[in-house]
Design a protein around this nucleic acid. Structure first.
Length: 239
DNA sequence: TTGTGTTTTATTGCCTCC
DNA sequence: GGAGGCAATAAAACACAA
């Protein structure tokens, strides 16, 4: 079974939790709330059975499956995530278990599998988020530098205009104007490869003749920023 | 040994589908 | 309406540090 099939099976209608969108609370959210409100009550007979009080038969107690049984079930789970009733009964007979136990085992196993996939998904989203934060910080830093540079140029321009006015006796003069930025003072905008791929900015960046940093260069750059005290916290991972 | 955290097995209540 | 699935949860079993 492919991972995509797997996820389709396990997340038939995956959505971000309703609390992410409080303004769009729906009846689905209500259902979830209702579920969370619920407090399970263990029926007395079930509690007694678990405690071994009803006749004291060992079968009623919670028993761990043997390694062999668990291994067999695990192999079956790898082949098929859900069991048809006949297969369930057959499996139970082969393992000397109750069909209900096999069903429960599969149910719990699916839940474990799902939560593992969720963790992986979360980790991916988090790293993408971190990358966006870093990129944003980088761009803000770049913007700051450009603003400083612009201010310098404007100042230079004003000075030149004043000098021109003094020497020509007050004429207009438009000297010194064509300020094409020197390549050394303007650093190029860089895109982290992960970001570029993820958000489709690659083509646009190429078109604009922007250069790319290697992973190493990028990390070094982030270290520099961290050392300079930019965007505190975000760079902890680099230092 | 014991307190505590984690994993596993089982139950309950709700939902969907046939 | 019954079967089966899922989420939430309880509780036993287990692991492990102090």
């Amino acid at each position: 079974m492919s991972r995509e099939e797997d996820e389709k099976l396990l997340f038939p209608s995956f959505a971000f939790p309703a609390e992410c969108f409080p303004e769009a609370a729906t009846s689905g959210g209500e259902q979830k709330k209702a579920r969370q409100r619920r407090r399970r009550k263990v029926k007395p007979e079930a509690a007694a059975a678990l405690a071994g009080e009803s006749g004291g038969d060992e079968q009623a107690k919670k028993r761990r499956l043997s390694d062999e049984q668990a291994r067999f079930l695990e192999m079956s789970f790898k082949k098929e995530r859900k069991l048809e009733t006949p297969r369930k009964v057959q499996l139970a007979a082969e393992l000397g278990l109750d069909a209900k136990q096999v069903a429960v085992w599969f149910q719990n196993r699916r839940a474990r599998h799902k939560s593992k996939l969720m963790e992986e998904e979360f980790a991916k989203l988090r790293s993408a988020h971190d990358a966006v934060v870093l990129q944003n910080c980088h761009l803000e830093t770049e913007l700051l530098k450009l603003k400083e540079r612009l201010a310098d140029v404007e100042e230079e321009k004003a000075k030149l205009a004043a000098v021109a006015a003094a020497t020509t006796g007050g004429g207009g003069g438009g000297g010194g104007g064509s300020s094409s930025p020197t390549s050394s003072s303007f650093s190029t905008v860089t895109y982290h490869p992960v970001l570029a791929g993820q958000f489709g900015v690659e083509a646009a960046a190429e078109e604009a003749d922007l250069t790319y940093m290697s992973e190493y260069a990028y990390n070094s750059y982030m270290l520099e920023l961290a050392a300079a005290g930019y965007c505190g916290g975000v760079y902890d991972q680099f230092s």
